[in-house]
Nucleic acid binder design. Structure first.
Lengths: 347, 347
DNA sequence: CGGCCGACGTTACACGTGTAAGTTGCCCGG
DNA sequence: CCGGGCAACTTACACGTGTAACGTCGGCCG
């Protein structure tokens, strides 16, 4: 054809040098103008010429060159192991969207990377290649002390972890899952329940979140004599739920706190199908879910749930910005939000 | 305190020069070894020394410097407008996770960016700064011809769009939403239904997907004399659903195809609460959802749904790789998957 | 012995940007 | 008339990497 020499050469992107030529100034002037450092240095007329030239050429600065020069980029990496991503609820994705917008306003580029679930080291290496200004790991155990050290050594100013655990050396955005269990437990105990089952998801990625929730229920029960707590393992399939429902009478429970609304609805349906009534009344099993997902409002009885109330994403973005500006800050724990019981009909 | 001079200086990341010094070779040798170009150039013993030195120093290449030199990086950007991200179902996030893993195996870094929902131009600018090897936009209308041109001009080798529409100049991964409507319509018509409502979500970000689904149902009905199709607007709130249910008898419909399972369940619950039975029988309203979400199996009657069957993420990753290697390829349409009806109890 | 070749490294440049340090030209006070 | 200061730019370097082009050294053939 017309292409014997291999792939078609790509058009070269316009550089700041091209802008400079077109505006009839030096490259440095272009840089000052386009980065807002021009006050008192460059005449207004010249600034206008530069901006016009940039506009006409469709100039876009090269992030790589910029972060090469600056030693570190303006990327904020949100890291989540691939096997956890599917478990994100709408609550979380909404937070994510707001967070990325807020970062954008602060001049950062927020980016989500679902790392392959290899060793923490390998994941950290992949992230380090991007030389991000900050890394926000959404999954505690995926980041150990060595990984944090690797990131810091490669220039990452701030390493944050969101979740129930805090690897040494990293700042922590605490969404204290213990509190979810505590609140759910308190609600059930106040309603007179004494034998509480706690659903642990069989899906491996979620164990880090599930364990503290169980601990929270235990903590609530410890203060109340005669109360007992029992962990229940449940996979996200109807078969698994039916199996659990079949063993229900033998378990002798009068209440359940499920990992989230999906697990709660799944179990609730299985219980009802097996002839075990669900609700707040005597002889019924009380069920509490978590995350306040929409479908929980559509089942009967309506699902009582523990809802995470996250602080506004702008706040988190500002925090990240502050930590980047002061990399020497000693790691601390910052609250990401709290939990609140939304009482409906199932407990 | 001990910090009168401002922020603590960060430790400088080890560079390939540091590795070279430690291994007693030149920087070029390090580069050849670490990039696998050493065959016939560097002795095996030297290669081992270099690798050992890199390991000991915890060397991580600087992606920015690399992509500066190469003109273009190894980042594959998955772009999704912020207001669409929350609408991702588990099906999609699972695909995403697999896709990122597959990209990783091919040597790319897949990254998700929920762009602020500004103009397509502004979003494209933000993406272009990263000089990605490829951009995969998950939302058709967010990318117009000008945005595609901007990206290409700034060096992006491949611009892909996933969705029902194809902006000029971009390759398209087609998940033909028309087909979803077609299949749902055919199923309902075969079951004897003739007056079909189609739920359109009030949420603005979803219109691009909803419109072709409606068109598909229309297409199915056109082939069947006596069949009528009517669009219904529904927001994702219980009030909105109750309002629609109240007007139900006046609408005179005997079937509904909802945008997805959540909308279907919402409407189904509202109909039942208003005393209108749902199901496949005579005098009942048949309901079909989409996406095969778990909660759809937990309601009664169980929700019949149209399930997207996506091709394996590895295939998409290989396609992207091929397009990057041959940037001159003329834009084409590639199928991302098909739809299949999963019959259950609601239709 | 001259010349060539292959194996093994190195030197040197380019990529696009930010910014400290310099260089003008001009005005103004002494 | 000179020095100083200021506005308005420019010069020059550094950031870390990939790779084409260039040594160098020993061995082998004619």
């Amino acid at each position: 054809m017309t292409d014997p020499a291999g792939p078609v050469p790509l058009p070269t992107p316009p550089t700041s040098a091209a802008v400079a030529r077109r505006a009839g100034v030096s490259r440095a002037t272009v840089s000052y103008v386009l980065n807002g450092q021009a006050a008192g240095r460059v005449a207004a007329r010249t600034q206008a010429r530069v901006r016009a030239a940039a506009e006409e050429l469709g100039y876009v600065p090269h992030a790589a060159a910029r972060s090469l020069r600056a030693g570190r980029g303006r990327i904020v990496l949100l890291a989540a192991p691939a096997d956890t991503v599917p478990a994100f609820g709408p609550l979380f994705t909404a937070f994510l969207a707001g967070f990325q917008s807020a970062l954008h306003r602060l001049g950062y580029t927020g980016v989500l990377h679902g790392a392959p679930a290899q060793s923490p080291q390998a994941a950290a290496r992949a992230w380090a290649e991007l030389r991000p200004a900050a890394v926000l790991a959404l999954h505690g155990p995926a980041l150990d002390a060595a990984a944090v050290a690797l990131l810091k050594r490669s220039g990452t100013a701030a390493v944050l972890t969101a979740g129930p655990q805090a690897p040494p050396g990293a700042h922590t955005l605490l969404l204290d899952d213990r509190e979810a269990g505590l609140r759910a437990g308190a609600h059930l105990l106040a309603a007179g329940r004494r034998r509480i089952g706690v659903v642990r998801p069989a899906e491996p990625g979620l164990a880090a979140f599930a364990a503290p929730r169980l601990a929270g229920v235990r903590e609530a029960a410890a203060a109340r004599p005669g109360a007992a707590v029992r962990p229940l393992d449940l996979a996200l399939t109807e078969e698994s739920a039916a199996g659990l429902a079949a063993r229900w009478p033998a378990l002798g429970l009068d209440a359940v706190f499920a990992y989230n609304d999906e697990y709660a609805m799944l179990l609730m349906r299985a219980l009802q199908d097996a002839g075990h009534p669900v609700g707040p009344g005597a002889g019924e099993t009380a069920v509490v879910g978590a995350d306040d997902l929409l479908p929980g409002r559509l089942v009967r009885p309506r699902l009582t749930t523990v809802r995470p109330e996250l602080i506004p994403p702008e706040g988190v973005a500002r925090l990240v910005d502050a930590l980047i500006r002061d990399p020497g800050a000693t790691p601390a724990v910052h609250r990401l939000g709290t939990f609140r019981v939304v009482p409906r009909e199932s407990a």
